[in-house]
Amino acid sequence: MYPAQFDYRRAGSVDEALSLLQENEDAKLMAGGHSLIPMMKLRLAQPPVVIDIGRLNELKGISEAGGSVRVGSLTTHADIAASDVLAAHCPVLAEAAGHIGDAQVRNRGTIGGNIAHADPGSDIPPVLVLLGASVHLQSPSGTRSVAAGDFFQDLLMTDVGEDEILTHVEAPALGAGTGAAYLKFEHPASGYAVVGAAAAVTVQGGRCTGAGLVVGGVSATPTAVDVSSLVGTDLSDDAIAAAASGLDAEDPIGDIFASGDYRVHVGKVYGKRALAAARDRAS
């Protein structure tokens, strides 16, 4: 399809992008273009102005300092999937990025564009919520950060203000004794997650001292599962299955491929499997 007419502006800096945002009502920021352009081609989005921030190198890159990893919003999924820094400090984020789309999508799509679009079938959001990551935003009035768990508000809705740019995400590095895993049940047509389960457990002295499970695809936003019952256990298969079965979604998403009930069921199965994989990696 052919998009409606729009103006194209390319920003040379974050500051310029911010002022272009202020000057142009209803303008949309474009990073890799892999969420926005398909919407425009279907005329579901008809922004009068597209502000291209794709070349802002200041928003690219992955680093680690002081026990946390920082990923610039324009970092591509391919770079995240292949990152040595993440492999050493936060491999589950790289694992999830490697599941996104296909090689071409991963080469162009960015983490910032991905989470700003907030598709419920996206692979990154449940991992960020699991990790307790923070999302960093900049506006003409300054910068702020918001917890990933609060960032995703509803279907395709986030906490990004109209005058804000998402600059980077920060996540605590996984500590010793912690294992994490992301498991994806892929939609055969879209390649999005029907269900994506992100799990982490920490084991000390053969006992679980911390556990988390967040499931994507079941609801409009990532669904955290209370798996605190695992703390103090030896993470037996039965204990894990019981914990994962606590997944609950009030208003699950359904489509012609997978109903809401089925997604909840698969969320429990994949939650269980992700926890087991995390346990095996923790030891």
Partner: peptide, 29 residues
């Protein structure tokens, strides 16, 4: 056998009208 299905709803709308919903096999399948 496994994926493809052109689905119309009761009002005659093609609900699997895009490649986001109609699953053509990809090489990794």
């Amino acid at each position: 056998a496994l994926w493809e299905n052109a689905v119309y709803d009761d009002s005659g709308q093609l609900v699997s009208g895009s490649l986001m919903d109609y699953a053509v096999p990809k090489i990794h399948n």
